[in-house]
Write a protein that binds this DNA or RNA. Sequence first.
DNA 1: GTGAAAGCGCTAACAC
DNA 2: GTGTTAGCGCTTTCAC
Lengths: 339, 339
Amino acid sequence: MKKNLTLKQIAKELEVSVSTVSKALKNSEEISESTRQKIQAFAKLYNYKPNNIALSLKNRKTKTIAVIIPEIVHHFFAMVISGIESVANKSGYNVIICISNESYEREVINIEMLASGSIDGFIISLAKESQEKKDYHHIKEVINQGMPVVMFDRVTREVYTDKVIIDDVLATQEAIQFLLSKQRKDIAFITTPDYISVGRLRTEGYTKMLLQNDIEINEDLIVRIANEEELITQLEHLFDTQKFNALVAVNELYAVAALKIALKRGIKVPDELNIIGFTDGIISQHSTPAISTIKQNAFKMGEISAKLLINKLEEENEHEHYITEVIGTELLHRETTSL
Amino acid sequence: MKKNLTLKQIAKELEVSVSTVSKALKNSEEISESTRQKIQAFAKLYNYKPNNIALSLKNRKTKTIAVIIPEIVHHFFAMVISGIESVANKSGYNVIICISNESYEREVINIEMLASGSIDGFIISLAKESQEKKDYHHIKEVINQGMPVVMFDRVTREVYTDKVIIDDVLATQEAIQFLLSKQRKDIAFITTPDYISVGRLRTEGYTKMLLQNDIEINEDLIVRIANEEELITQLEHLFDTQKFNALVAVNELYAVAALKIALKRGIKVPDELNIIGFTDGIISQHSTPAISTIKQNAFKMGEISAKLLINKLEEENEHEHYITEVIGTELLHRETTSL
DNA sequence: GTGAAAGCGCTAACAC
DNA sequence: GTGTTAGCGCTTTCAC
């Protein structure tokens, strides 16, 4: 139960001053070769490690960044974190992860807690509830304090800061275009309520593309899932009441649920029904048939978010100049689309 | 770009001393009602927040705990984290997550980095490589320094500390017993090499149970996956060369891969082949047919790990007394087992 | 070459 | 009631 060694202790032990020890360990020219060696040897022997907290207090930086995500048991977010971790570690940063659990309150608490000194910057994806409330004062506040913030995926126009997103409208349009090119014009669309930015944008891509092709929008083909518990019921209702030969879902959970219902009803996939999901996660990969999907490059999204943040943290002159990076997507054909 | 307010600044502004401010904000009886109110009002107005780093340095505790896991894009670990987060937050602790990426080196680096002051305690699940190397000096070292450590799932006998595990042997035995009770005696077993503790224990459960029932072990029915890239090849080989009417896999990835191959070969599941996996994740839930599984209660595992750690952190008298909590499992029947 | 001293932001024992 | 002081562990300027 030996406590961690401090400079003071080394100094005492070696009968020199604290500052000498500090300099010697930094290999400062000021200190004579011999004392330097003596001190370094001692420090090594007793495995001296500088206390990070003291360094943070002194330097006014903690070398850690915080990630606030709505949910972790989710392939997309797990991949983003993986990407963040990977670049953060390379630059010597630690990563703190906090889960808002889609709750506005938890988002606020986490951010306020961390904002007071514990971290150097935030990477945030908004909780559903915050988007619903449209209340972003907590984020604006930390930005005002001069703390860099990067938002990804679930972002909002109301906050000025760096953002990393995919072009949801375009990505959806590409998927719809593909289906249309195969003469599949009755396309069901499973999405979220419009207050979720990504859901809204994807729905926009869907309607835009149909209109561009002079196809009338059938509102009954658009299913908005507000509550995941009603996912199955709402999908069953869709299958009961509508005719369609293709289906696009804004995430893989909705896609696989739809696939499952189709299979149960003996609908042949992909012959009678094409299915395209979003998020290239393990569900899509491992279902049978494997689901064709719009790949969002979550890992890359994490990497870029972290890079943007670290750039802001390390650049000298802080010009107020924010960018929004748009990550490319790709349509990945597997077994639920017919080529 | 206002920097964070400090006690000093408040003191100056209000022409009192720093300690008066400190006490006033703590509602100390020592300070007169009027100055207390004045100071509190001012602090509130300018949104004063104490600097966590300074507090940590002072108190020698950071109120944050670190979780080191091998992999985050994995339902089991994501759920464990969720559980840890949930109890940590309730007790006012922050959670730092670091990913060892199954690498011994990254595990060592992360632990050493955090051990120097940044955190109060660790929750660790070992990287494959560390288990392979059997090198745990980095963990023993932090424990020696007096830092509490809780290990979960991938643990080792060589380190004395609190642990949270499932009874892998027993859990596997129950699965095997179920299959035997249905007269399925040719059971393939997809596992990891023996240096992964959970793989070894589950294999032990498998052989034990068969022997208990006087069934000879057919080594060719046991497939050890050392490298996930060869998963498919090895499984194909199994299906090519062996006859079996049941299959148990030590994780859901192996289970779904086996299911997929079976389906491709036109083998009827569950009629001709029963499949049971470990880990009740989204893969098992959403595959068609949905995979029966041994549920590990990952969330609970996280909760208990966090509780054990926080107890250690907050108890006064530190008696060297370690416990190993065994979490119950349950066999969850879905569509790949016949009842 | 080496060391004393100040300071990062906060607390607490001890004066006054 | 309020303020002074020392100290958490470290760095850095400035004396010696």
